[in-house]
Structure formats: C-alpha cells, structure tokens
C-alpha cells in the first residue's frame, strides 16, 4: 500500500467516487422518470379511447331524437 496521499490530491479521488455514486442514482432516476412519462402517455391514450368508446356507445343506445320542429308562424298580437 502506498503512503497516504495529501489532502489536495486525495480530495479529487474522494470527490470522484462520490460523484460516480451520485451520477448513478441520477441516471437511474432519469430513466425511471422517462418510464413514468411513458406510463402517463399510455394512461392518457387509454382514457381517451375509453371516453371515445363510451360516447359512441351512448350515441348508439340513446333513442333517436325527433326532428326539429318547423318554426311556428309568429302570431300577431290581437288588438
């Protein structure tokens, strides 16, 4: 084993080791965040699909609307 390094030289190794650890965690969190955003996109897509189908089914089930009534002739006020 080599003799102990002086603080100024040892500092960069220690900082390097702790930065590696931090970087590893940050990369992991970043990857998980991207996965989470994909999950969110899927949830949005599925929600839209369900809503679209729901509105389509409602339209099929709902009874046909009567045709709009012809505009009535305006009655003249009796004088």
């Amino acid at each position: 084993m080599l003799p102990a390094l002086p603080l100024d030289e040892a500092g960069k190794y220690v900082a390097g080791a702790y930065l590696v650890f931090l970087l590893l965690i940050l990369i992991y969190v970043a990857i998980m965040a991207s996965k989470l955003s994909k999950i969110e996109q899927e949830v949005v897509a599925i929600t839209e699909l369900v809503e679209r189908r729901g509105s389509g089914a409602d339209a099929e089930k709902a009874p046909p609307r009567p045709p709009p009534a012809a505009p009535r002739a305006r009655k003249e006020p009796v004088k």
Partner: peptide, 18 residues
C-alpha cells in the same frame, strides 16, 4: 481521518456499503 490512508479512506463509506 484514517491513520494509514488519510482522506482517501472516505471512499470506504460509499464503496463498502454499496
């Protein structure tokens, strides 16, 4: 500070638990 390795020994606290 470690008597043998000095400041470098601080790596021990992240390396060994990991």
């Amino acid at each position: 500070l470690d008597a043998d390795q000095g400041f470098v020994q601080k790596i021990f606290y992240v390396h060994v638990p990991m």
